[in-house]
Lab assay of single mutants.
Amino acid sequence: PQVPQCKALYAYDAQDTDELSFNANDIIDIIKEDPSGWWTGRLRGKQGLFPNNYVTKI
């Protein structure tokens, strides 16, 4: 099955070790969508939390 993905609308710099940094237009694999607004994703071999208001699902 296809892994859900999202595209970064803005760059995000991780504020903690469990967060994921990314650049605008990066494509992130979505591991888990949480109602809190912090999703778990994977990018370039690293997994971490990121704010879903920085991305749009594709």
Score class of each variant (00 low, 15 high):
P1A: 15
P1D: 10
P1W: 08
Q2F: 03
Q2C: 09
C6M: 09
C6T: 02
C6R: 02
C6H: 01
C6P: 00
C6I: 03
K7I: 14
K7P: 00
K7G: 00
A8M: 02
A8I: 00
L9G: 03
L9W: 03
L9I: 05
Y10A: 09
Y10W: 11
A11R: 15
A11C: 09
Y12F: 05
Y12T: 01
Y12S: 01
D13I: 12
D13T: 14
D13A: 10
D13E: 12
A14P: 05
A14L: 00
A14I: 01
T17Q: 12
D18W: 08
D18R: 12
E19D: 04
E19L: 05
L20W: 00
L20P: 00
L20E: 02
S21E: 07
S21N: 09
F22M: 04
F22D: 02
N23H: 13
N23F: 12
N23L: 12
A24H: 13
N25H: 09
N25Y: 04
D26L: 01
D26F: 02
I27L: 10
I27H: 06
I27W: 04
D29Y: 07
I30A: 02
I30M: 04
I30V: 15
I31Q: 04
I31E: 07
K32N: 14
K32L: 11
K32G: 11
E33H: 02
D34V: 06
D34I: 00
D34W: 12
P35F: 06
P35A: 12
S36A: 11
S36C: 07
S36Y: 06
G37M: 04
G37N: 05
W39D: 02
T40M: 15
T40V: 15
T40A: 09
G41N: 01
G41R: 01
G41W: 00
G41S: 00
G41Q: 02
R42E: 13
R42N: 14
R42C: 15
R42V: 12
L43G: 02
R44Q: 12
G45D: 12
G45C: 06
G45M: 10
G45N: 15
K46E: 09
K46N: 13
K46D: 06
K46H: 09
Q47E: 12
Q47M: 09
Q47F: 09
G48W: 03
G48S: 01
L49T: 07
F50D: 01
F50M: 06
P51C: 06
N52W: 13
N52M: 08
N53K: 12
N53S: 07
N53G: 13
Y54V: 10
Y54W: 07
Y54A: 13
V55Y: 03
V55G: 00
T56L: 08
T56A: 12
T56P: 04
K57H: 07
K57C: 04
I58V: 13
I58T: 04
I58L: 11
